[in-house]
Design a protein around this nucleic acid. Structure first.
Lengths: 210, 210, 210, 210
DNA sequence: TATGAATGAGCATTCATTCAT
DNA sequence: AATGAATGAATGCTCATTCAT
């Protein structure tokens, strides 16, 4: 009886390895051998699980995106959007690595329409996830009803992207605390608390239903 | 005597060509031959003006950055920061191309510390340029004194970067008008007009001087 | 399991091939493709075993030097140093090829200090090997005690080098017999037989022991 | 009236420059630009005086060889052949440079039969020059009549070549004094003084003339 | 004569991919 | 499934040579 191998687990191993290597060396300096070695395997093994290099890189990107999405989906009840966003900032070695990988794909997407489409799909999911959280916070009276969930979801994404690029490229300039305060300065104005009147109105509505 | 050539002009030609090629094909698919051909020259000519490929790419990046900086410096008297920022958005073929090039360098900087340093230098200049404009607007009473010029300069950069990446990768989703309205939504809250009290105070001061 | 390959044997194959090609075409006209083809392989295979061209060339040089050293070490009991040296002369196609390779590295060492150091190491070994033989011959009473082993070792090397260069570059002028007689003329005066007195002294010593 | 230029002098300038550059960088690292620059000119000027790179290199080699030949021809009355030879050793920066150039051509001659022929011509002249000196010394009773002028001329050349290669590649190991003593050890045995009988015979002849 | 810009062939090197075992 | 040797296309870089001025 042959050794039973969890195909998906193996793929995930390689994806993790790819993230590690890309994060360390940059996507241009990442060879398949490096990824294989990082996973404790050989290129031959790697190509059993992925058709070609692009497939490996995509798996790395997907691994990353799924991680973010998972965090978003388990944060629907989040107290504060700014705090939620702050957790994604490149404030430690791990998140810095992830951002380095994410950034690596921007340039690649420029010359690869297929990758651009995939990227777009992730962004749509991010936005939808954030919009869901925003709506939830509005329902809970934590956030003004004037905020457009989709527009603000997109805004949060752009601000996180743009700022994290900066903080990732200039890690010495941006220690964790300064990152958080800069993020606060950019995001807070977009997330006003409900006016007292609105909150009353809301309660009134609920009251009326009751 | 040989044909006298304006060395700097020739370099700029090649830089322009490099921007065009990178913008079209992405930095990974850009070979020196392509750049040379785009400039109507050969690789040999190209390497007369640049030591190696990296030098060519850096020239492209610099060409871009200097363009932006020039715009910033000639806009100190700008009426509206949001409008100024909006002009940088990827709303037409040319600016889209520039953003595609700019994005290409993010990934590259990940694996190239020297490039990261160069990038940082540009960002510092961008920020300083924006801060200067902000201070000017505060002096002119167009902008609240509560705004921190450096923080807001950095904020504008991040927002432009993050959002333009998005708009560049998803051009169909983001026609010019939608881009401008999204930018407005992200930036306007960061740029409050002075409170009437403040403005009065300022006038009062002027009155007193008069 | 992949085909198991004797890594060292494969390297030696390539080294041999490199010697053949350099010997035939000269080191300047030697391209990696030629070496690979000579070994019945491709450049790709070649670069599996050697980091770069320099490594290939060094392997060729080493292959040569080890051959000479082997001959020296297995000749400690040699009857006649002149005869031993004569065997190294470029008197046939094979040794001519080896000398052509050896000569190729002189010029290269001029511009490559690392190679010069490597060369020096070989020369030290040659000299030590020859000195050992000289001492053995002195012990056996075949050679005068007045001969300084190290100085004469170096002398033999220089004479062989200098003369073989000449004979290699002018093969028609120097048929085997003329080579041997010229070598004899240069070396014999340096290798005087012991004086009868000395030999007697030695015998006397032995006699005394007996 | 155009500037009159001494064509031959200009060529000699370039030859000198080529020697300097080859001696410093090695023949493989010597580009025509380097030679031109060393001569304070441009490649264009260089190619006015030489058909191609090979011609430049040959001029360098010839410059060297003519220098040696000149020394030989003006030394017919030399007192001591060993001393004469010692003056050619790489004992100072200048002669070291010359030897580095000379050595550079060994490897090149391997792959270039035309160069090998040229080399041979130089060697013939060297040998003839030395043989002339040897004969003169024999006539003057400074050297044994048993010495074969041609054989010993060739021997001196080989010994100088072989040993100078060594001393050039290992300059630290071979300070001037050690070089001279090693050369003495190799050459002196080949250059016996005439036996008293011979000298007497000679004197007798002279006496008879007187 | 001299300049130096431009050409373009030559070559080492890299690396994704294939495949026999 | 896994190995890793081998392939070979791709490409940056070097530099002798040419040539318009």
């Amino acid at each position: 009886m042959p050794k039973l191998i969890d195909h998906d687990a193996r793929r995930k191993d390689f994806a993790r390895a790819a993230v590690a290597v890309i994060g360390e060396q940059g996507i241009d300096n990442t060879r398949l051998v490096d990824v294989a070695r990082e996973a404790g395997a050989t290129t031959g093994a790697l190509t059993h699980y992925f058709n070609d290099k692009d497939a490996v890189l995509l798996a790395a990107l997907d691994h990353l995106a799924q991680g973010i999405l998972h965090r978003l989906k388990t944060s629907v009840e989040a107290d504060d959007l700014v705090a939620l966003a702050a957790e994604i900032l490149p404030v430690n070695e791990e998140s810095r690595c992830e951002w380095r990988v994410w950034m690596s794909f921007f340039g690649r997407a420029v010359g690869d329409p297929a990758l651009a489409r995939i990227n777009k799909a992730y962004y749509d999911e991010f936005r939808d996830g954030l919009a869901a959280i925003i709506r939830q916070q509005q329902r809970e009276g934590k956030l003004s009803r004037d905020v457009d969930p989709a527009v603000t979801g997109d805004a949060i994404i752009s601000i996180l992207d743009g700022f994290s690029i900066r903080a990732t490229l200039e890690p010495e300039e941006w220690p964790a605390a300064r990152q958080r305060s800069q993020l606060e300065a950019m995001l807070r104005p977009l997330l006003p608390a409900p006016l007292p009147a609105q909150r009353k109105a809301k309660r009134g509505k609920k009251d009326a239903e009751a």
